[in-house]
Write a protein that binds this DNA or RNA. Structure first.
Length: 489
RNA sequence: AGCGGUAUCGUCUAGUGGUUAGGACGAGAGAUUCUCAUUCUCUAAACAGGGGUUCAAUUCCCCUUACCGCCGCCA
């Protein structure tokens, strides 16, 4: 078997989409599994929509996900350049070849003419196919049109190619994930391969690039299935080897429509900003359409690659549901080491003055707060009471503090705690005894702790109380508790 | 409209011509903990519908339905 070469070919008209990331992943997995080469190609033929920031975003996101490419615009490779706009001088030669072989022809139709025909077809509820009216233009006619200043586009002659390589008008290929796919190509219109401005269209450029880059397997979204038939015909017309194709189901939003901005994040970088770990993202997205043979769902990309078989990918669409992603994200957060967490949490702690805490205090704070986090960004709202002198008392905490019991607890706490040695270990013991004392009076430990928690943090839930006291220190603790007692009087 | 594709718990999926149709997330109940979270235990939850083929169909075939995609001088 010849060398496996796959590619991901994003268009830089937006940030790296989560769906593109999944396609990239499956290509990457296929390459890994088959000891092949993973190529990154930037399809920026649409100059108007291309932006450098999108190209950067695509690079950064792919890298962050761990999907490193072997050949690409930045690292180069034997079949470059890997940016389509730098390949414009390559395509005319192949257009000419097709023209010479009669598989392509010039079309002088104007946009207005074409639009009118489409409108007409729509009115009659007929599918629109190009009329082929430029197919048999004589040289004189063409010369005349040219003299009028008209520039031709080049169209591919489907019927001619189909007849040259196939018995009937049916074209069939064996898709790696969907099985045999058929299409009656007589239903397809002769499509443009080179625009009148001299730039290639997508369908043509892909074929030339895939051919020249020796791509052996094309794995992409199923929205490309109908393109595949056109592309196969071009490969054949050029006498090139046709790669194998595999078409993946789409990722849909929970309402079964295309995943878009109104459903939340769509770009990998947006997910990251929201506090998702790239490890969780890639793992989650792998599970959309693919299932591990051992039932273990938490896996690194490399582990998945070992187990991966492309024909086992589900061929149906799947819905992007946040529940499982969130679960997975919290799971990955728990697997992070404390030093790593300290670093990765920092961007989400910008609103606080971290210099208020010593490194040891910061460490401890992270240790006692990371567990319930679903998103890294959840840390923002989980830690306000570690900072500043005073604290905002939430409504629920207010209710707790208004009870007589709470006041009694707090007064007693002030009384006793002033003599406590303020280490976490000691506080733990003292607090336990403190709870015991009240328990003897018929006050539940839970109620006792609530009073202290509400006064010190302004909340009814949060991190381990002992640790909180130890981290913020005796002064802040006393300050906050006495404020509460003062206000009640 | 035409063409192509898909159909197992709410979601992601496993699975088989004969199974108590399995797992995960989520949901509900309970236990543990100062709270939240964790952890543990338990529960509910699916083969889209109709025809065939067959001793037997969720599994194979056909039709219907639903959903998705494609029909650009976008990619």
């Amino acid at each position: 078997m010849s060398e496996v070469r796959v590619r991901i070919a994003p268009s830089p008209s937006g940030n790296l989409h989560i769906g593109t990331a999944r396609t990239a992943l499956f290509n990457y997995l296929f390459a890994k599994k088959n000891k092949g080469t993973f190529v990154l190609r930037i399809e920026d033929t649409d100059a108007e929509r291309t932006k450098q920031e999108y190209i950067d975003n695509i690079f950064d996101s792919l890298k962050a996900l761990g999907l490193n490419w072997d050949e690409g615009p930045d690292v180069g490779g034997p079949y470059g350049p890997y940016t389509q706009s730098e390949r414009f001088d390559i395509y005319p030669k192949y257009v000419q070849e097709l023209l010479d072989k009669g598989f392509a022809y010039e079309c002088f139709c104007t946009q207005e003419e074409l639009d009118a025909e489409k409108e007409e077809a729509a009115k009659n509820k007929k599918p629109y196919v190009y009329t082929k009216k430029c197919l048999n233009l004589t040289d004189e006619e063409k010369a005349k049109l040219r003299a009028e200043g008209k520039k031709p586009a080049i169209r591919f002659n489907i019927e001619k190619a189909q007849k040259a390589f196939h018995e009937t008008s049916m074209l069939t290929f064996d898709d790696m994930v969907k099985g045999k796919l058929h299409m009656d190509t007589s239903l397809l219109g002769d499509f443009v391969i080179m625009k009148s401005n001299g730039t290639p269209t997508y369908n043509f450029a892909v074929v030339i690039d895939d051919m020249l880059m020796k791509i052996s397997h094309v794995i992409r979204g199923e929205d490309h299935i109908s393109n595949t038939f056109k592309q196969i015909l071009i490969f054949e017309a050029l006498g090139a080897e046709v790669p194998k194709f595999g078409h993946l189901g789409m990722i849909l939003a929970p309402d079964r429509s295309k995943l878009s901005k109104r459903h939340g994040a769509t770009a990998v970088s947006e997910f990251v900003e929201k506090g998702y770990l790239t490890e969780a993202l890639i793992n989650f997205v792998a599970l959309l359409g693919w299932a591990p043979s051992d039932g273990k769902e938490i896996k690194t990309v490399d582990e998945i690659a070992q187990d991966f078989r492309i024909n086992e990918i589900s061929s149906s669409n799947s819905i992007f549901e946040y529940d499982k992603l969130n679960w997975m994200n919290s799971h990955y957060i728990k697997m992070l080491s404390i030093p790593e967490l300290k670093e990765r949490l920092k961007p989400y702690l910008k609103k606080y003055d971290l210099s208020e805490l010593t490194d040891a205090q910061y460490t401890r704070m992270v240790e006692v707060t990371y567990e319930p986090l679903t998103l890294l960004s959840d840390i923002t709202d989980a830690v306000p009471y570690f900072f500043g002198e005073d604290v905002v008392i939430e409504d629920k905490a207010k209710e707790v503090l208004e009870t007589e019991t709470s006041q009694e607890v707090l007064k007693s706490f002030m009384e006793q705690a002033k003599d406590w040695e303020w280490t976490e270990e000691n506080l733990h013991e003292k607090l336990e005894a403190f709870r015991g004392e009240f328990k003897a009076k018929g006050i539940k430990p839970k109620v006792t702790m609530w009073a202290i928690r509400a006064a010190v943090t302004g909340r009814t839930c949060g991190a381990d109380m002992t640790a909180i006291l130890a981290i913020i220190g005796k002064d802040k603790t006393f300050h906050r508790v006495s404020e509460v007692i003062k206000q009640a009087v």
